[in-house]
């Protein structure tokens, strides 16, 4: 983490290190509380059941939090996130595994930014897919 990635070290097609997150109720409820999102389906199993879900499921801010962490783990402390754009899919529930994968799709030497196609899969399909744009030191 202490090493920052530099723009010149990155090329299109580079893969980010895989990150597999074993999902627990603690992760899902912890993420909801850390983002101050007390919508009941994210912390109350009976509310989730009433919504047709087997268990509490991850809120969107936590998904964004994990995706940005996934990228900055790779990019290092000097990186600055410019954009996180995702399409949302299948819900994350305890007992499942969220597999985060990423690949560099564009490098903009002028603007100093890198586009990364990111995907968070779980056993139901794509939890979230999209693009993260991050500024790297030159």
């Amino acid at each position: 983490m202490s090493q920052s990635r530099r723009l010149g070290d990155v090329k299109v097609g580079d893969a980010l290190p895989d990150l597999d997150v074993e999902l627990t109720a603690a992760i899902i409820v912890g993420g909801a509380i850390a983002s101050r999102d007390f919508t009941p389906v994210h912390h109350d199993r009976s509310a989730a059941n009433a919504a047709g879900m087997s268990d509490v499921f991850m809120n969107i801010l936590t998904t964004n939090g994990y995706l940005s962490r996934f990228v900055t783990d790779w990019a290092g402390p000097d990186a600055a996130l410019a954009k996180v754009a995702i399409r949302l899919g299948t819900p994350n529930t305890p007992g499942d595994t969220m597999q985060l994968r990423g690949e560099v799709t564009a490098v903009d030497p002028e603007g100093g930014t890198v586009d990364i196609a990111v995907a968070a899969k779980n056993s139901w399909g794509d939890h979230a897919t999209g693009t993260v744009t991050v500024a790297l030191p030159k």
């Binding site: 009941p40 995706l67 940005s68």
Partner: peptide, 16 residues
């Protein structure tokens, strides 16, 4: 953390 942006203004437990 930048993606924490909305957390600063969410109302917390009142949402429940």
């Amino acid at each position: 953390p930048p993606t924490m942006l909305q957390a600063w203004i969410l109302p917390g437990v009142r949402l429940a």
